[in-house]
Computed example of a mutant assay.
Amino acid sequence: MAGRGLNVDGSIAREGALSRVPHAFAGVVDAARARLVEAFGGDRLHSAYIYGSIPRGTAISGLSDLDLLLALHAEPTEADRLDARRIEQALNQSFDEIDGVGILLFSARTLLSELERHDLGFFVACLCTPLLGDDLAEKLPCYRPTPLLARETNGDLSLALPDWRRQAAKANTDNQRKGLSRLVARRIVRTGFTLIMPRWGGWTSDLIESAKAFGFYYPERAEQMRSAAKIGRAPSADPAVLRQLIDDLGPWLAAEYAAVHGEKAVRP
């Protein structure tokens, strides 16, 4: 690699691999593969992928979650979503090594569509590790840290803020606030990183490194972003933390993002 998450030709390198899965999570990954084959095998599943800290080799036992993406031959149905939820619950209950399971469902057609070329397509090609089936990355282009990629990956933060405010208002338990703080903090840090990604000239999914890179270009917001990175790894139940993320850092970041890169193409 040329450094900063790039291949020698300057394209963004795929960040995970099954060979990097920590030994403590090998059984989790094997069980996930088996359950996916059992539930979605046959004519429903085109391919399956694992992403996040586990295939990057940075997962922490008891704290990290298991993230999966399924590419289906057809558009996901309610029956597909129900089967995915059953797998999530079964894996989470069976393994103390993980703190939550998330399964994303899309059709292969959607993942390869022109509209998703620089969002979900990039996600599959660079951030997902093949687990089952034929790898869709073979049908996708190489990606570089461009303003186009920045706009299409995270140029819609403003659309998430109202829903986060509604969720924060309804959250009445520590677990609910912790879950929301982790989701919001991770999204904000990754948006902050892609804001400066073309200038930084590389790619990282590491929250701490992302916040550090952001702070170089926006020193006046550096401390807030560093705090968000910490919350993304160790979520907080403090309502004040959510307010700072959703009502201060988030709106500023959304406005700055739109000014620098423009807004993401509208989805139907």
Rank of each mutant, 00 (worst) to 15 (best):
N7W: 12
A234R: 15
S210L: 03
V37C: 08
L45W: 05
S181A: 13
S210Q: 12
S47R: 09
R243P: 01
I188C: 07
S158T: 05
Q224M: 10
G52L: 08
R186S: 07
R4Q: 04
E78Q: 14
R81Q: 13
A90K: 11
G41C: 15
A150E: 00
V29I: 09
R243K: 12
F95G: 09
R4S: 03
A171M: 08
F106M: 11
F193D: 02
D80N: 12
E114N: 05
D163I: 06
V124D: 01
R44M: 02
M225Y: 03
D67K: 14
L207G: 00
L45Y: 09
F25W: 02
D156L: 06
G57T: 08
D65V: 11
N175E: 14
M225D: 01
A2R: 14
L6K: 04
M1K: 06
W203M: 13
A229F: 09
R165G: 07
S19D: 10
W164T: 04
A32K: 11
W200R: 14
S205T: 11
R44F: 04
E116M: 13
L120H: 03
T191W: 06
Y218G: 06
R81I: 00
L63F: 09
F95P: 00
L111A: 03
G3E: 02
P219R: 12
L161E: 02
Q176D: 11
D99A: 15
N172L: 08
G155Q: 05
I208Y: 02
L6I: 01
L149E: 01
I246K: 08
K170L: 15
L120P: 00
A137Y: 07
L115A: 15
P55K: 12
A254M: 01
V184K: 10
